[in-house]
């Protein structure tokens, strides 16, 4: 691999891995989601540092340019990460749906309870266990 692209590649990988670490440290990124990025960054880093490995894999898969091998693996990991996101988003959507429904029902019950309480207030108001809340 020509030196300039090798250096650029190594630098990008190091920055990516370091940045993901920093995000996790600051709790901006959950450990669950950091895994995909760290694996991607590390594998790319290893492939960029050890030329022979990259050339060997390129020969194995029949790629004429070893940069294409690098791109290929980068893309593959991105696809996996995206799919993982789709799955998580689907789960989150379902959870939000459930929450919406239950919040709506609870709110209705709360309102009608309040109405009931105000209606009862015209009668003599005795302390109930509700007052503790």
């Amino acid at each position: 691999m020509p030196p300039p692209i090798r250096i650029i590649s190594i630098l990008i990988c190091i920055v990516l891995v370091a940045y993901v670490f920093e995000l996790v440290r600051r709790k901006h990124l959950n450990e669950e989601y950091s895994l995909g990025w760290l694996v991607t960054g590390s594998v790319m880093l290893v492939l960029s540092i050890f030329d022979e490995l990259l050339i060997w894999i390129s020969d194995l898969v029949g790629a004429t340019l070893f940069t294409s091998t690098l791109f290929f693996f980068g893309l593959l990991f991105l696809v996996i990460i995206c799919l993982h996101f789709s799955i998580r988003i689907s789960a989150l959507t379902n959870q939000v749906r459930r929450l919406t429904q239950h919040v709506a029902i609870l709110y209705q019950e709360k309102s009608s309870l309040e109405e009931q309480m105000y209606a009862d207030r015209t009668l003599e108001r005795t302390p109930t266990s509700l007052d503790k809340f």
Binding site: T100, Q101, A104, Y107
Partner: peptide, 18 residues
């Protein structure tokens, strides 16, 4: 009628299921 209000528009199926 009794009314249950969803906090935001969520679509026919979600409303019905509520």
């Amino acid at each position: 009628a009794m009314v249950i209000s969803l906090p935001f528009n969520s679509g026919y199926g979600v409303a019905l299921q509520t």
